[in-house]
Design a protein around this nucleic acid. Structure first.
Length: 315
DNA sequence: AAAGACTGCAACCGCAACCTT
DNA sequence: GAAGGTTGCGGTTGCAGTCTT
């Protein structure tokens, strides 16, 4: 627990020094930050805080943007598919929330962390308690291990890809967000066509690298595909995505406390993926199956960035 | 109806890595 | 290479809302 006294002293110091606000953000502050980001894009956060006229430190602005204001966030409850995926990923990655979040479009590390700590952990604990066999105790929940990794990856392999394209309906009906953006911000920029959803093929040899929002003034961490550095010499097949189509429908409705409401419809643009760097033939062409027995688990766990990412799918 | 316990989530803190000069 | 600034991340805290007694 924080010591109230210490906290008060710190706050006093902060207030006296820079008169920086702390605590919950007001709608006015949100609006200021949002407007600034829309107009100027992302830059140095301390400059943003200053230039936007916010009495906040850059760090606080960054966090607010990432966890609440940024337009590509999916809000609302986690779907069962998302929950399942989080459990799988956690069994592999442990508490690397940002890595997990990177594979769940529209979700933040903070959100997932909170969800895990408040809901999933409890649920799994209950399940374990109910299980008389109790071979997997709570350690398997909080710590990655080979057993759960196996289970996780097996499940991932069998995973219905529909589940990987998370709950797209909820994203469109979500109460949040999005906005239209001027040309400065397109969270789903055109990419080279490496991902053929219609045919269900995904050329892992040129996997995702970065959807570089940074070039458009955003991003760096969220919504950015990290380069793969694959540790697998196996193929991971991806079932076809029926009904998802190749078109990507950007339907952003910016609905914060501001009155800005816009829509970006880019439904004719095919999904494309940037050239992927750092992978050479790790995922391609060795048959249809994902051969679990041949995995180098040590290598995999040592190199968590090798895990597959979910692609964005927004309707 | 009121008070205490519980819960979920937003936000802060501290540290490490990275970047710039 | 050192120093200072910035960013990213995971752990933790505090508070408002909800539930229970």
């Amino acid at each position: 627990m924080r010591k109230p006294g210490d906290q008060m002293v710190k706050e006093k110091l902060n207030n006296n020094k820079a008169k920086l606000r702390k605590g919950l953000w007001s709608p006015e502050e949100d609006e200021k930050l949002m407007n600034y980001m829309l107009t100027n894009g992302q830059g140095c956060w301390s400059d943003i805080a200053r230039n936007a006229g916010l009495q906040r430190c850059g760090k606080s602005c960054r966090l607010r943007w990432i966890n609440y204001l940024r337009p590509d966030l999916k809000r609302g409850a986690f779907s069962p598919q998302e929950e399942e995926l989080i459990i799988h990923l956690h069994s592999i990655l442990g508490n690397r929330w940002s890595q997990i979040a990177a594979r769940l479009p529209g979700r933040t590390d903070n959100e997932i962390k909170n969800f895990w700590n408040s809901t999933v952990k409890k649920r799994l604990k209950n399940n374990n308690n109910n299980s008389t066999s109790s071979q997997n105790n709570s350690d398997s929940i909080s710590e990655p291990n080979k057993g759960t990794v196996m289970e996780g990856m097996m499940a991932m392999h069998e995973y219905d890809v529909a589940a990987m394209y998370m709950d797209s309906s909820s994203s469109s009906s979500s109460s949040i967000q999005a906005m239209v953006m001027n040309s400065q911000f397109n969270p789903f920029p055109p990419m080279d066509n490496k991902f053929d959803i219609v045919n269900g093929s995904f050329d892992f040899s040129t996997c995702l690298q970065q959807v570089d929002m940074g070039n458009r003034g955003f991003g760096q961490d969220y919504g950015v595909m990290e380069p793969y550095v694959m540790g697998l010499d196996n193929d991971l097949s991806v079932p076809s995505l029926e009904g998802t189509g190749t078109e990507q429908n950007y339907d952003y409705i910016f609905d914060t406390k501001t009155n800005i409401n816009n829509q970006l419809n880019n439904s004719t643009e095919s999904i494309k993926v940037e050239d992927i760097v750092g992978i050479e033939n790790h995922w391609q062409g060795q048959g249809d199956s994902f051969k679990m027995g041949e995995l180098d688990w040590e290598g995999l766990l040592a190199n968590v960035s090798s895990l597959p990412y979910l692609d964005f799918h927004v309707e």
